[in-house]
Every structure is written in structure tokens, then in C-alpha cells.
């Protein structure tokens, strides 16, 4: 049975695995810049990208990501992994991606979410505060919401961009329908994850959406796998926390009674 602790641990494992892929992606990008490809530093103060320093940063990110997956010194590992992501983002603009930004924010919240209470090599017994898990859920919802809203433009909705991005040469009429479907699906997931009635459908559509993105889009497969690993394991938080089980567990806390959470 999926409990709140297991759901948070599942989110931790997903974010850790995504961290491994993000570190590998950062390594590829930054070493290519070190080899002479165009550099777009965020500021002139940023040190030049060199292979040895990329190796050090990537090594630290990989070790931290592995520790997050295993649940070993989870808080420190999550913060170190988030820190390496921030450094990568600040080093060169080309390392930016929405999934790296999302996972960085979620890792900071995860550090305080008590994700090592179960399925961890070094378990914590401390009762976590309620806010990290709720903010992880709201952050995920916000991501889907704005991904959908930004697609409400005449270019995307024609289906032509989707036609160009897909692995297969599908009829434009079909990619037009898929573009509409993608926007509606993202909007539905953003809202319906919070609805007890529609949550199972939102979770099913979310899994289907991410699988179809990974399988269907021709390029960027591993970053898209990282995006899926960042998002899908968080659904468990909605299936447990938002289902009503969350409130009684914290009911003894005066703070919780006062806020009526």
C-alpha cells in the first residue's frame, strides 16, 4: 500500500535518478563547450568551462544523486545535488532546461520532506513538516499549467511543430488533434491532481503523456526520460497526501489545527 512516507520516498528515488541523467546531460553539454563549441556564459564573471572542472562538478552531482536514490544522508545529498544544478545553470546558458529547473526546485523541497523515513539505507525517524510535500505538489501542478498555457498559440495549435518533432511522419490532421489533446491533457492534469474524484484519471493521463513524449519525440530522449522521472513519481504524493490521509497524521500539531490544513 502506498503511504505518505512511501510516496515521498518514491519521489526521492525519481528525483535522484533524474539527477543522474541531468548530470550526464550537463557533462555532455559542458565538455563540448570546453572542446571549443560556442559558449554562452550567464555572466562575464563565470569561470571558463574546462574539462577537469566539469568532471569535478559532474562527479559531485553523480555521487549526490546516487545518495538521494539510496536515501543516504538524504537532506545533505539533495541540497548538494540542487547546488550542482544551480552551478551548472549559472555556468553556461545552454545548460538551461525546464526539467533541470523543476528538479532543482523539487530537490530543495525534498531535502526537508522526510523522504528518508522509508526505503532508505539511512532512515530518519523525525516527523517531517507538511509544507515541503505540499510545495512539491503545487510546483508540479504549476509546471503542467504553464506548459499548457504557453502552448495556447497559433503556431503550436496548428500541429505543424508536433509534426516536425515526432519520430513518425503522421498526417497533419492527426498532429493537429494531438496538439489540442496535449494542451487539454496538461491543463487537466494540473487541475485534476487536486480533485479526489478525477485524480486517478489525471495520474493515468500523466503517465500516458510522459510515455508518449519519451517514445514519440525524435530528439532529446534522455532529457525527456529525466523529465518523466522528475514528474511521474510525484503523483504518489497526490494519491496519499491530498486524499485526506495527510491531515489526521498531523492533527496533534497545534500549528496544523490553527492553519486548518
Amino acid at each position: 500500500m502506498l503511504t505518505a512516507d512511501r510516496a515521498t520516498a518514491l519521489a526521492r528515488i525519481g528525483l535522484g535518478l533524474a539527477g543522474l541523467l541531468n548530470a550526464a546531460e550537463g557533462w555532455t553539454l559542458l565538455t563540448r563547450i570546453a572542446d571549443g563549441r560556442l559558449a554562452l556564459p550567464v555572466t562575464d564573471a563565470a569561470p571558463p568551462v574546462q574539462t577537469w572542472s566539469v568532471a569535478v562538478l559532474t562527479g559531485a552531482a553523480m555521487l549526490a544523486a546516487l545518495a538521494v536514490v539510496l536515501g543516504w544522508r538524504t537532506r545533505a545529498a539533495a541540497l548538494v545535488l540542487a547546488g550542482t544544478d544551480v552551478l551548472v545553470l549559472l555556468w553556461d546558458q545552454q545548460t538551461y532546461s525546464s526539467h533541470r529547473l523543476l528538479s532543482t526546485i523539487l530537490l530543495v523541497l525534498l531535502a526537508f520532506a522526510g523522504s528518508d523515513r522509508t526505503w532508505a539505507v539511512r532512515r530518519s525517524e523525525a516527523e517531517p513538516p507538511p509544507w515541503p510535500r505540499l510545495l512539491m505538489m503545487s510546483q508540479l501542478s504549476v509546471c503542467y499549467l504553464f506548459a499548457a498555457l504557453s502552448k495556447l498559440n497559433t503556431t503550436f495549435l496548428t500541429g505543424a511543430p508536433l509534426h516536425a518533432w515526432l519520430r513518425w511522419d503522421l498526417p497533419v490532421l492527426l498532429t493537429f488533434a494531438m496538439a489540442i489533446g496535449a494542451v487539454l491533457t496538461e491543463l487537466f492534469i494540473a487541475v485534476a491532481l487536486w480533485s479526489r474524484r478525477f485524480r486517478p484519471l489525471a495520474v493515468a493521463l500523466g503517465v500516458l503523456l510522459h510515455v508518449s513524449i519519451v517514445v514519440g519525440l525524435a530528439d532529446q530522449t534522455w532529457p525527456l526520460v529525466a523529465f518523466a522521472l522528475t514528474c511521474v513519481p510525484l503523483y504518489g504524493l497526490f494519491l496519499t497526501e491530498a486524499s485526506g490521509r495527510y491531515a489526521p497524521r498531523h492533527a496533534a500539531s497545534p500549528g496544523m489545527i490553527r492553519t486548518g490544513a
Partner: peptide, 21 residues
């Protein structure tokens, strides 16, 4: 939200991936 109404789309911080902008 602010990123969505900025003049140059897409932009960083807006979760505007695959928006074709």
C-alpha cells in the same frame, strides 16, 4: 505568470517547453 506575459517568448523560468515559440 510574469514570464508568460514577457515580450520575448519562450523564456527561462516559465515552463514553456515545446511551446513552438
Amino acid at each position: 505568470l510574469v514570464a508568460l506575459f514577457s515580450p520575448d517568448l519562450p523564456n527561462r523560468g516559465g515552463f514553456q517547453m515545446y511551446s513552438a515559440l
